[in-house]
Design a protein around this nucleic acid. Structure first.
Lengths: 247, 247
DNA sequence: CCTACTTTGTGCGTACGTTCACAAAAGCCT
DNA sequence: AGGCTTTTGTGAACGTACGCACAAAGTAGG
């Protein structure tokens, strides 16, 4: 059956579009900066510039949350910070577990950006006994054996996977079995999860590849050829050089 | 780029849709795995499953590159690997410079996922003299003073910014001035760049916030209320509680 | 109170992205 | 060879997202 029913149509009634949700953290960050500078109100034009988006888009995005602006004035910074935070669920505490304490897990454990919002690194886990017991960012690395217990006792709801790719699916399965329903995956693998579990992926290599594509477009006009593998024996086709097929 | 042209013909003629470009690395990874296992051909259905997408989408995506499949059979794995690599520009070498050798920069320097494709970490840079000179991943950390020279001599075309947020824009400006036209930004800031320069952003905290949003939706149905800031003093308006609240 | 100005919130046209569904192409079997 | 099966490539329908442009709603000033 293969995941026939994705919970994609999240926009029922009052739903907020995915694209908007993805931008709310951006607005929140810009607003936080304004708040720290003591700015009381901000117009959609200013805030949009700070967040790097179009002002109409910003207004439409905010309109999904409610009508929190004042015409002729703008938005109250503090109030909007609160409303966005609430919508994103940042007014509550989110205990996070990081699994796989290699270079990346190490870096994330020390990353300040988590704590700045409602996120709290509740546990660091690794399968390697050479790593467990070490103290990182003032926290002892625990062994994978304790995963289920930790998730239960600390009410961990978000798992961050920073293991090598081959271990990722197994770790993922254990996280899901332990009751976790949100996973941030840094391993370069496609994770399969049951319905109801959210997975977001961060893939450093993919981002670079996308950049390379555009860079190639800008620099050379032609993709550089290397050793060209033979075309799978085709009867009488044109050569291996795929002709540009514009119109 | 010529300053006169403000035109942005992203997908004219032979252009490949952005959404497709973003998925090509995914297909490439799945294909590489198949290739290593010695699988000679693969159907769109199988490949789509491996990449975690819909098979119709996969076929449409691949059709933008050309007609590389064989009806009734599928795609030749090696050949498709080559074609996608070529389209993404991975058949050439992309020297990358990492600026900001903190925890994250350190992790990236050691990250194997770069070298596995056409990317090569050509330089590690930091502004802190306490860091420069250290050897990381078999490479000496150079000082920011050398940036322009390194970019020129090593033909660096992609810059990765892993500095603290306050330093990011300045570093970015220097990279651009040095001639770099593709930037991968890990600092939680909106970078402003001139036309013709591509910036991609990876923001760990934003990903978590998006997960929190969905988690909140799943777990509790109500956004949890905290200390509610007063609504900006409105004359004779309705109360401070937005009536949009879900029942 | 009335007029002039500012800025939000949104209806609407357009562009982009996804999915369905099927004809066309290729291999295979008798 | 001819028909049957498999699988690609794509036209068309649908859905989502973007951004313009403007009415509505507010402020400010006389």
């Amino acid at each position: 059956m293969a995941t026939g029913r994705t919970e994609r149509p999240a926009q029922r009634g009052r739903g907020i579009p995915e694209a908007t949700v993805a931008r709310l953290p951006l607005y929140l960050r810009a607003l936080s900066a304004l708040s720290e500078r003591g700015v009381p109100t901000v117009s959609s034009e200013e805030l949009a510039a700070a967040a790097g988006v179009n002002s109409a888009k910003l207004r439409k995005d905010l309109s999904y949350l409610g009508s929190y602006g004042t015409r002729g004035v703008g938005y109250d910074v503090e109030y909007l910070v609160y409303q966005i935070s609430r919508e994103l669920g940042l007014t509550q505490d989110w205990p996070v577990a990081i699994i796989g304490i290699g270079n990346l897990g190490h870096a994330l454990a020390n990353y300040g950006g988590f704590a700045s919002r409602g996120f709290r690194v509740a546990a660091l886990l690794d399968a390697d006994r050479a790593v467990t017991g070490q103290r990182i960012a003032g926290m002892a690395v625990r062994h994978m054996d304790d995963l289920e217990q930790i998730v239960r006792e600390d009410h961990v709801s978000i798992g961050v996977i920073t293991t090598p790719a081959p271990a990722a699916q197994e770790v993922c399965d254990r996280l899901v079995a332990a009751g976790i329903t949100s996973i941030l995956n840094f391993a370069p693998t496609v994770l399969s999860v049951p319905e109801g579990v959210d997975v977001r992926k961060v893939d450093l290599s993919i981002e670079l590849q996308i950049l390379a594509f555009h860079e190639q477009r800008k620099s050379g006009l032609d993709p550089v050829a290397g050793p060209v593998p033979a075309r799978p024996s085709k009867p009488g086709e044109r050569g291996d050089l795929p002709e540009v097929m514009p119109a």
